Simulated assay, not measured.
Amino acid sequence: AQARVLGFKPGAGPLLPVVMRLADAAAGPPSGGGWAQLARAVAEELAAVGVPVLLGVRPVEGRVPLLLGLRAEAERAAVADRVAAALRAGVERADMREAGGPPPVVVVGVPGGWAAASAGLRHAAETAAAAQGLPERPWYDARRLDIDLLLWRLRDHPDLAAFVDRAIGPLRTHDRRSKPPLLPTLETYLAHAGRKAETARELHLNRQTLYNRLARISELLGTDLDDPQTVLALSLALRARRHVAVG
């Protein structure tokens, strides 16, 4: 009933929660433009998206939550593309992005009914915080970032920092003291699921140089990079290091 009063009248399809978090939200609400101007600019941009929109603004948390009325879940990705572009355009128009700073993070949640809308927005908001520092994308799918969200929730737990230090501490020490750094090699290697040709191509290395670096990584860590449990632990540690302060 409150949504109808605000002019939000979705059809019988699912509701899609979306949250935009400004890049410097952790340091407090950004200066410039003002949140009222941001709300107007975003609302104007969203008017062209072509679906019902219920827009909110949360200056204290540095984020903009919204609900979208979909006709069917199948249009989720296409609508998300248009909404993410509209949100970013609104930020630029309102001058709410620091010069040279990273773009805002847009997280698209899980479609559902009214009963799930509140939880869906909370999930998307937390995921937007957890996505800070990830490789830039127009928007992030909340369903694909559950591991990052879990690690972010554990960010203040000393056991997580200890795990990261045990798993990749020797590489961090090496990279502070020696060249070339090895953490980027490991990260790229794991991102390509251990496919050496693709790893070498992305890093612009010849195969033998890559083999030498991988051997050095295995030596420093005392692990076998072909062991699935080792790969899992290293992957988690690399993702968790964004959220913890380790030496």
Rank of each mutant, 00 (worst) to 15 (best):
V5L: 15
V5T: 15
L6C: 12
G7F: 09
F8V: 08
M20K: 08
A23L: 00
D24H: 13
P29W: 06
P30C: 10
P30V: 15
P30T: 13
G33R: 06
W35Y: 09
Q37T: 15
Q37C: 06
L38V: 14
V42G: 01
A43F: 03
A43L: 08
E45Q: 15
G50C: 11
G50R: 15
L54I: 04
L55I: 00
V57M: 14
R63Q: 12
A72I: 03
E73N: 04
A78E: 03
R82K: 10
A84P: 10
A84Y: 09
A84E: 09
A85V: 11
L87E: 13
E92D: 15
E92P: 11
D95N: 08
M96H: 05
R97V: 00
E98R: 01
A99R: 12
G101K: 07
P102G: 08
V105H: 13
V108Y: 09
G109E: 11
P111N: 12
W114E: 14
W114M: 09
A116F: 11
A117P: 07
A119P: 15
R122Q: 15
H123S: 10
H123V: 07
A124P: 14
A129I: 05
G133L: 06
G133D: 06
G133M: 08
E136H: 13
E136D: 14
R137Q: 09
R137L: 01
R143P: 15
R144C: 11
L145S: 14
D146L: 13
L149P: 08
L149S: 01
R153C: 12
L154P: 02
R155P: 01
R155G: 03
D156H: 14
H157F: 11
D165Y: 00
R166F: 05
R166H: 11
R166M: 04
P170G: 12
R177D: 07
P181M: 06
L182A: 02
P184M: 12
T185G: 08
L186I: 04
T188Y: 06
L190K: 11
A193K: 00
R195K: 12
E198F: 11
A200T: 14
A200E: 03
L205E: 04
L205T: 00
Y211A: 12
R213D: 10
R213S: 05
S218T: 13
S218F: 06
E219R: 10
L220T: 13
T223P: 00
Q229H: 07
L232P: 02
L234A: 01
L236Q: 04
L238G: 02
L238Y: 04
A240F: 01
A240E: 09
V244G: 09
V246E: 07
